Amino acid sequence: MSDPVRAVRPLLSTRAVLGEGPDAGVPAHYGAPLREQRHLLDGTAVVDLGHFELLEVRGADARSWMTTITTQVLTGTPVGSSSSLAVLSPQGRVEHMASAVVLDEDAVLLVLDPGARAGLRHYLEMMRFAARVELTDRDDLRVLGALSPAPEVLPQLGLPAPLAVWSEPWPQVAPGGVAYGPDPEDPVGAVLTIFEAAAIEQLPWQSADLAGMSSWEALRIADHRARSAREVDERSIPHELDLLRTTVHTTKGCYRGQETVAKVLNLGQPPRRLVMLHLDGSQDLPAAPGGEIRLGGSEGKVVGTVTSTALHADLGPIALAVVRRAVPLDAGLSVQVPMGEADGETSSVWIDASQEPIVLPREHGGRPATARL
């Protein structure tokens, strides 16, 4: 279970409407979510990701040690380079995910979803043994999200030089990676710019400089990017969420959970698959994470769960969901929208949804022919 979301002061509180769930610590929007999303897409606004947590791993063995105990290769990568990584259980389940930046030859900075740092730190401390590393919570840092480094997006604001910038060429398959499905249409990517918190919190922020977390989530969903705080549950294996594309290096040495990764990659296929849903917006009923997905109407069989939802400026209402592998790619689905509680029972309505494949079953190209370990 994740720790409570740590409290942060929004960069701009005027008209701010705070988010929910893991994003309760920052504004969902500032009164005009779709306009804010346009500014984010136009490269004229940033998103306050001050609730993201940071952990620094420093020491002579930092990069080699992290390569050994995670799914990613950090040894020999250039200073300033970015990657995504995960820690798996012995059974290959996803336990932790992070974005990683190589700060210098002896240090890696990890950016994590809110509430995720304590669990990862506990695991790393257990695995330290004789490794020459030190772990430091970096609550003195703050993250801004955008489609380019924040100083390029807001040159007029006078942002200081960042400590680090995380970026990866999504959806390009990373070295050692394997794609389990098609690339998203018109991907926009994501850039995390990391600053000393005190240096940016006192700047004269204006509402036009900022887009809310709802905008960030809309672009993430449209880009088909799984998020630890939303898409990962106790059953998740990397293949189901297309994490082998950038987060799991399939040709590196041994790591915990590698046997499951190899077996499913080379001999089997994942039991579930990530999809993007295009939701019927005609009823103006917003879906929410946790809603059931049924096959062929409200009386049909439950085949999955909604994990993330958003209103996209161009695509309308969209969602990410995890469904059973056997659900036909062209099947019409129904998504549950809870409407409140009456007489001790929760009432729901159902809206129609169509699929945009992210992870494909093997018969549709979901098992890469060239994969090897």
Score class of each variant (00 low, 15 high):
Gly281Trp: 04
Arg230Glu: 14
Thr71Ile: 03
Val57Asn: 08
Pro33Asn: 10
His224Trp: 14
Leu40Asp: 04
His122Cys: 09
Ser82Ala: 13
His39Leu: 13
Ile69Ser: 02
Val47Met: 06
Gly291Cys: 01
Glu356Lys: 13
Leu329Cys: 02
Asp223Trp: 11
Asp106Val: 12
Arg256Asn: 06
Met276Gly: 11
Ala222Ile: 02
Ala226Cys: 11
Ser83Glu: 01
Trp350Cys: 11
Ile358Asn: 00
Val87Lys: 02
Ser148Asp: 13
Leu85Ile: 07
Met1Phe: 02
Leu279Pro: 00
Met127Thr: 07
Ser354Ala: 12
Leu49Tyr: 14
Gly59Val: 09
Ile200Arg: 03
Val73Ile: 14
Asp209Arg: 02
Val17Tyr: 05
Glu95Ile: 05
Lys263Met: 12
Arg245Pro: 00
Leu88Ile: 06
Arg256Ile: 15
Gly304Leu: 09
His29Met: 02
Glu259Phe: 01
Ala197Thr: 13
Leu124Val: 07
Val303Lys: 10
Gly297Phe: 02
Pro149Thr: 04
Pro238Ser: 04
Leu154Trp: 01
Asn266Phe: 05
Met276Val: 12
Thr247Gly: 00
Leu244Phe: 00
Lys263Ile: 05
Leu157Pro: 08
Ala313Pro: 02
Leu333Arg: 04
Val8Gly: 03
Thr14Lys: 15
Gln72Arg: 15
Gly300Leu: 11
Pro361Thr: 07
Met213Val: 07
Val165Ala: 04
Gly344Trp: 09
Val335Leu: 08
His278Glu: 14
Arg6Gly: 01
Arg362Asn: 03
Val191Glu: 09
